[in-house]
């Protein structure tokens, strides 16, 4: 493994995603990417008594399916790197309990998907583990309950509010086997340009996305055109145009490639009006990446993709205490060999 520039990792030993799975809820199953998900639940309770148990079940199921897809048993797995939006990341911890493998829990909010993938790839690339599972999950109702209001509360959402994805995405990383290769990762740093409105995640996270993208191209010496597709995690309809403007101002030629956002891809905003500005949550970038994007890579549609997962690192208390929202973005480059 090498360091490129200030904050980018280059993986020398070609860690690859040898197995993956996505499990989603009803809204995602009704969206434009529904055919890319492995399992779709038609209700939010998922047969459980609490929303929190339902969220846990999503991750447990996705991790099991990913292992099956990778032709591995739990016993052969070396590590699980996971995280989610719940206090003390309980969904991941309880899933780790079920997996019974050595576990590293991380909190990156909605950037967790790429944070865990980057770390899992590092473990594999360094030889510290042969098979590492990276995964994350989010559930619309647990997030509403913890960060905003009870789910049946009648408050009116502003036109820039986002909708937390109910879904889990997991990938198994290894040096041996077949699958798209993780070539580089750019670790983001906290960016906070003073946005305080917890309903305006897109505006809060845009600077972090821009900063990480700028850092990636600076560190690697590459240009946007190197990638067939660059996606951000969940900037949605407000954050993506802001990021585009920020990057344009800094002279990054994003028009060389397709620049989209998982939060905009996962829902049909015209038909599914409840999502307002678009999708958000750990599960957003995870399900779109491990489902849709890797499917397209498998078909040969895409050869090189940069996934920039964005997270807002606020707590339910911090904004009540008048703090602004610190954000972060982690980028992972995934390339198809050959």
């Amino acid at each position: 493994m090498k360091r490129l520039g200030r904050q980018t990792w280059e993986y020398d030993h070609h860690p690859r995603i040898i197995g993956r799975a996505t499990v989603v809820g009803p809204d995602e199953g009704k969206g434009p990417l529904s055919s890319d998900f492995d399992y779709i639940y038609d209700n939010l309770e998922i047969g459980e008594k609490t929303w929190e148990k339902a969220e846990r079940k999503l991750l447990e199921q996705a991790s099991q399916l990913a292992l099956v897809n990778a032709n591995l048993t739990k016993e052969e797995l070396h590590y699980f790197v996971g995280g989610d939006l719940m206090n003390q990341i309980i969904s991941s911890s309880f899933s780790a309990r079920q997996l019974g493998v050595p576990y590293l829990g991380v909190f990156g909010a909605c950037s967790t998907s790429m944070e865990t993938l980057a770390l899992a790839s590092m473990i594999v690339d360094s030889g510290a583990g042969d098979y590492v599972l990276a995964g994350t999950v989010s559930h619309n109702c647990t997030v509403e309950k913890q960060f905003r209001y009870p789910t049946e509360y009648g408050s009116q959402k502003p036109p820039y509010a986002q909708y937390t994805v109910t879904g889990s995405g997991c990938g198994v990383v290894s040096r041996t086997g077949e699958g798209p290769v993780i070539t580089k990762a750019t670790i983001g740093r906290i960016m906070d340009l003073g946005i305080k409105d917890p309903f305006n995640m897109g505006a809060a996270m845009a600077p972090a996305a821009a900063d990480t993208i700028i850092s990636h191209f600076r560190d690697t010496g590459l240009e946007p055109g190197y990638y067939d597709l660059i996606v951000t995690g969940d900037l949605a309809s407000v954050g993506l145009p802001i990021t585009k403007e920020l990057l344009h101002k800094e002279g990054i030629p994003m028009e060389q490639t397709v620049f989209n956002d998982c939060g905009l891809m996962i829902y049909d905003r015209e038909k599914q009006t409840q999502v307002v500005a678009g999708g958000s949550g750990c599960g957003c970038s995870a399900t779109v990446t491990y489902g849709h994007i890797l499917n397209r890579m498998q078909k040969g549609d895409l050869k090189r993709v940069l996934v920039v997962a964005t997270g807002a690192l606020l707590s339910p208390l911090s904004y009540q205490q008048g703090e602004s929202i610190p954000c972060i973005a982690h980028a992972v480059a995934i390339e198809q060999e050959g």
């Binding site: 960016m191 900063d211 700028i214 850092s215 191209f217 600076r218 240009e223 800094e250 002279g251």
Partner: peptide, 13 residues
Amino acid sequence: SATGKKKTSSLSM
């Protein structure tokens, strides 16, 4: 970068 532009390490805003 490859285009020869000097990149600052942070957003200039």
